[in-house]
Design a protein around this nucleic acid. Structure first.
Lengths: 349, 349
DNA sequence: GTGAAAGCGCTAACAG
DNA sequence: CTGTTAGCGCTTTCAC
């Protein structure tokens, strides 16, 4: 009958009420500052709570009020991705903002092998990098709590409030720089339709190319593929097939590294015969020869912005629905490096 | 009467029960796999839950069962410290282990300006670097849930299960290396009695010195001081006062950097006239001239170990009390570098 | 096999 | 001004 375990021994409001000689209801109001009562009573209850070391049970409070003062963060394979600086920075930003607003920040378990059987005890959720085939993400987005997506939502997922890096501006800066070097045959290597980021990149490159009467080559990769080798396997045949390509714009820095290797293997010199750039930065890109132009994804700022957005939605009287389609962007610095700085020497006319 | 807000609209067990034509009690048992009933009934309930997208309310479940499947992490000024690699690595390890055991991981709000009014909804807490004057840490340690300290607990705090780096072994390796270069007058700069780490370092250096008939100079600093300048202000007078010191062992890498600067300013050449080492590593130490010997604190491994320990305590039938005094250590690699490699040229006999 | 009822700790109406 | 009452969603005896 009594719950097994850890909760046992905790001081409850009943204990405080008894000690102060009032009812639990009065005690509750005394502590929350609500209700009208003599200052004396209120002080007596406060004192009792203090003496007993009373801390309200957040579970019970949350059950009753529907508010938990906790926010959740979900990332597909959170534990594994926590090895990447991107998610770490993001999380650091999210924690900073959550704590500033006096909320706990819950890193939701993301063992995707089994579906959650339980709705997380949070007031809202940030889904970092929503991926269409991430079942957990879908579950969370179906929850009756507001959701903010950290990055664009693939079109096959339900809409929600979005906070994303300003890829369009950043990628256009890269493309313009490449154009100045005479690029005519851009290739985009980007995650497939499971990723909203991939969709955005295709849109931007598509629009930019159309404005110039160019036709980009589009190659689909898998989101979250961190292996350079795998990307080489993907790119070797397509690059062999398309010798006219004079710019490889890769979403992933690992794909960019792979492109460098493959091109070199084909006897083409990156930065001269062909330009290379990435839509996400990584220290390794600086160590390449030549160093690879890249967009810096502002992970920390995104973490902050996502949580700020979530808090704003929670406090919005119009209700969470008002936020559904909205997109907010965070600037993404562009680092132009030697891989896009050399005038193209056109090997083949 | 109905709680305002976010919870509204959620599918409850009542809805599932109604859809399946059973009572909530039966529905509960059907889903949890407990209780005896016809497979047909169980399937019907499962199906209804599936169709409605039912997720159990973790708050209610937790209130009833006393288990939330969530673990908390507390760090003084968590948000600020999340800028340091140490806490990031620690957190990454903690998340990995927590998720492996199917628990959410809550980064507890650590706005220390106001005390928590609410007990966090977690089954147990990891307190990273417990500091004696951290009120939040004390609050958490008074909670009726098990607590694991990530690093030694200062003697003025209540005891709990401890998981710490093996400072003793590591520091002794550094001291032995220094002794081989002829060190006779070691100085230890370590956090004051607010920090269990500081206490351990003083104990180790004290014991080691006693074994050799040496008397170490002990300087107390403030835990968490990340500024090199502040450390310089602290060290300049003491080092001027104690020209005989031939080894500065600093707990913090920033104190080690400060020592390097101060010594150089005094015309003493670190690595030759005087040795320098740190009890925590930092990239900047590699860039010093000469590079500074340091102990690498295994943050990620500590994060994993703390959570593993917490889970073990939660599953231990003997109850959490059994774990109270225990200390578990994680190896801390030592990086011997040039700052302790040169034979001391004794400027003064 | 299944349902009714109690209660985890708390808050919000409504009486008194 | 304060106490009584009801109920948040769930689990768990205990009758039927």
């Amino acid at each position: 009958m009594t719950p097994r375990g850890r909760g046992a021994g905790a001081v409850t409001l009943k204990d405080v009420a008894a000690a102060a000689g009032v009812s639990v209801a009065t005690a509750s109001q005394a502590l929350s500052g609500r209700g009208r009562m003599t200052p004396a009573t209120r002080e007596r209850v406060r004192g009792a709570a203090e003496d007993l070391g009373y801390l309200a049970n957040a579970l019970a409070q949350g059950l009753r009020t529907g508010r938990t003062r906790a926010l959740g963060v979900h990332h597909e394979r959170a534990a594994a991705n926590l090895r990447t600086p991107y998610f770490r920075d993001f999380l650091a930003g999210a924690v900073e903002a959550a704590h500033r607003h006096d909320h706990d920040l819950v890193v939701l378990s993301s063992d995707t092998s089994r579906p959650r059987t339980t709705a997380p005890r949070v007031d809202g959720v940030v889904v970092v990098d929503p991926i269409a085939d991430d079942l957990r993400a879908r579950e969370l987005m179906a929850l009756p709590v507001p959701v903010v997506a950290g990055e664009h939502v693939p079109s096959s997922m339900p809409p929600c409030a979005v906070v994303a890096a300003d890829h369009a501006t950043a990628v256009r800066a890269v493309l313009d720089a490449a154009a100045r070097q005479g690029v005519r045959h851009p290739m985009l290597v980007a995650p497939d339709e499971n990723s909203g980021w991939g969709e955005v990149l295709r849109d931007v490159v598509g629009a930019w190319s159309a404005e110039r009467g160019l036709t980009p080559v589009l190659v689909a990769s898998r989101f979250g593929e961190l292996s350079v080798d795998r990307h080489e396997e993907l790119l070797a045949p397509v690059l062999a097939d398309r010798p006219e390509v004079d710019l490889v714009l890769a979403a992933s820095p690992f794909a960019a590294q792979a492109a460098m290797a493959v091109l070199r293997g084909m006897g083409r010199q990156p930065g001269r015969d062909v330009l290379v750039a990435a839509c996400a930065d990584e220290p390794a890109l600086l160590a390449e020869d030549p160093p690879v132009t890249a967009v810096e994804l502002p992970a920390y700022a995104l973490g902050v912005a996502c949580v700020e957005r979530l808090v704003a939605i929670l406090e919005d009287d119009r209700g969470p629905a008002a936020a559904l389609g909205t997109v907010q962007t965070v600037p993404a610095p562009v680092h132009l490096r030697a891989s896009t700085a050399g005038a193209l020497t056109r090997a083949m006319a």
